[in-house]
Simulated scan of single mutants.
Amino acid sequence: MDVLTDLLHRARARTALVRQLVQRPPWSVAYAEAPALTVMATLGGPASIRVGREPVRLEAGDIALVTSRDYTIADDPGTAEQVTIRGNRKYLPSGEPTTEHWFLAPRTYGDGLPGAPVMLRAAYELHGEVSDRLLALLPELAVVPAGPRTGATLDLLAAEVSRDEPGQDAALNRLLDLVLVQALRAWCAESPTPPSWYRALADPGVGEALRLLHGDPAHRWTVGELAAKVGLSRAAFAARFATLVGEPPLTYLTGWRMTLAADLLRDTENPIAQVARETGYTDAFAFSVAFKRARGVSPSDWRRTVAG
């Protein structure tokens, strides 16, 4: 399993609320306390997105990945905010709640007039410590320019959004996952500072080692075994891994195990000894020492804290 697939799977980036806005200008919608990751795309016309102070123009087919909890989308940066969405409630600029909406079809809002641009928006609810690693890939706003690969997927997604047929949610989630993966690939490939492991995936030896570590993190890996698996000498493999990933193989593995352990402690009631075994430790005491070194608290204290 490659690193990006593992992150997306474990962060539970699989179910999202998908909506589309079909609205003639002027329009402007602010989002407050939004979910951790939002994917947006413009179809048939430009739009604007503002995170912080500086607005960014989105051309037709562009995809915006937003990790900020507060942002505004509009037809133009100069359009005043007309409504704020907070949670499941809508508020006027005065702060008064409103029930007014522009419902057109399933998952579709706006006036629906001919020639109105379409804004697709999907909000992902991510989960746990693994999601922090996924979100660390991105700034508060990452814009991926339109391209033929993402364009074809966006067209399919837009065609499905307003339908209401059996299996609709499954179809939407799979198409949206494809949009997200394509956008993340494009962002990492073009970013001047991509995550080190992303560059390392292209290396035959180190990329295969990363896949092995993520495929079976509980295995009692050694540097020698990993080197043999990828066909390199122990010294050459260790040096190459550290250069490309930024840390030695077993240091990387320990960090990933601690991330998995933190989520197991949060999400399950499994005994500490079982969590230790599931993350590659046969000795619960050794696991507790490693966890406290990584997180600053014991596993049991961590569990109590996140439960509270």
Rank of each mutant, 00 (worst) to 15 (best):
L104N: 01
G167I: 05
R57T: 14
G95Y: 01
A262Q: 04
A32Q: 15
P93K: 06
A294K: 02
K292H: 12
V144L: 05
A74G: 09
R185E: 13
D6F: 14
D177G: 11
M1T: 13
D2W: 04
R24V: 00
V306G: 05
R14V: 12
A64K: 00
V206L: 03
E81H: 03
A239Q: 12
S233T: 15
P271T: 05
E59A: 15
P25D: 03
G87A: 09
V144M: 08
L184K: 05
L43N: 09
L120N: 01
G115M: 09
P249A: 03
A186R: 10
R303F: 01
G52I: 09
L178S: 14
V22F: 01
G215R: 01
S48Y: 08
G52D: 05
A30T: 12
W187K: 02
A307S: 12
W27N: 10
A158K: 02
L120G: 06
D2F: 11
A209S: 11
V230W: 09
W302S: 10
D62P: 03
G231A: 11
D283N: 14
M258E: 07
A80F: 00
G215D: 00
W302T: 08
R266Y: 11
D216Y: 05
A36V: 12
I63T: 02
P271E: 08
R234T: 13
P26D: 06
R121V: 12
E278S: 13
L201D: 12
A122F: 10
P148V: 05
P77V: 01
V223F: 01
L92A: 11
E96G: 05
V275N: 07
E96L: 12
G224V: 00
R277P: 11
Y124A: 06
L137Q: 10
D6L: 14
F291W: 08
A227G: 10
Y91M: 06
P195L: 06
G115D: 03
H214I: 03
P139L: 04
L4Y: 04
A235D: 14
T98F: 00
G61S: 08
E96D: 14
R19E: 09
W197C: 07
R50T: 15
G78P: 02
G246L: 04
M258W: 10
G308Q: 14
D132H: 15
V83N: 03
A41G: 07
A183P: 02
A136K: 03
N88W: 12
T279R: 01
A30E: 13
A158D: 08
A228S: 14
L210D: 02
V275A: 04
L157H: 02
H127P: 09
P106E: 06
W187Q: 05
T153I: 12
P145L: 01
P46G: 01
R185H: 15
A290T: 08
S68D: 08
L8H: 06
T254Q: 15
R107M: 03
S300A: 15
R293N: 14
D267N: 11
E59I: 08
D216R: 13
A146N: 09
T150V: 11
P97N: 07
I63Y: 03
A171G: 10
D177N: 04
H9P: 00
L212I: 06
A290N: 10
W302G: 07
T84K: 04
F287C: 07
L113H: 14
T243A: 14
L178H: 13
G167A: 10
P166G: 01
I272C: 11
G115T: 01
G280S: 09
D62H: 11
S300K: 09
V223W: 00
F287K: 02
R174W: 12
P249K: 07
Q182G: 08
A238V: 11
G280A: 02
